[in-house]
């Protein structure tokens, strides 16, 4: 099959490349761009380990063709680290509250949490659980993930208030 010219903005950077249209976005990110944060867990859009932000929405990059993503703006977990290299608020809260163990679901989980808190900056515990239900974790039982996201929401809101 012929390859197509793909242009994306990934974590704020313009990237281009040649790819077969059938290449899955997750493979394009991982194999072509070396962005290995998004992981492949189930391949049938159930586990969410491949979650990235595409044009301001959480998507499962294992179920998006790179052709569909052409022209889109993508954010992966790598893009959530602070510019100075320190951990972003959600990343830090996951560490602080032991919201990860093997780390495999973590990039998808944090990327999803990032979007969830954009959509709903003040979620209840129930809303957090519903909002991350597209991301499976085999290690943590979610309890500390939920705690970490609630803590991140509180800190982000406090920072917002302080800024006002």
């Amino acid at each position: 099959m012929s390859k197509m010219h793909v242009k994306l903005k990934v974590n704020g950077r313009q990237v281009e490349g040649l790819a077969e249209p059938r290449m899955l976005l997750v493979h394009f990110l991982r194999e072509e761009l070396g962005i290995t944060g998004p992981h492949i867990g189930c391949e049938t859009s159930h586990c969410g380990a491949c979650t990235v932000d595409m044009d301001g929405r959480s998507v499962k990059s294992c179920t998006v063709f790179v052709a569909q993503a052409n022209g889109a703006e993508i954010v992966t977990v790598e893009g959530l680290t602070n510019p100075d290299g320190s951990l972003g608020v959600i990343q830090e809260k996951f560490r602080e509250h032991h919201g990860l163990q093997c780390g495999f679901c973590t990039p998808g989980m944090i990327t999803r949490a990032h979007r969830l808190l954009q959509e709903n900056p003040n979620p209840t515990e129930e809303e957090v659980r519903f909002g991350i239900a597209g991301n499976l974790c085999r290690c943590t039982g979610y309890q500390n993930i939920v705690k970490a996201i609630m803590a991140a929401a509180a800190e982000l809101n406090a920072a917002k208030e302080a800024a006002q």
Binding site: K60, R112, G134
Partner: peptide, 8 residues
């Protein structure tokens, strides 16, 4: 489904 699937 779930939030990500509902995005697409």
């Amino acid at each position: 489904a779930d939030p990500q699937v509902r995005s697409m």
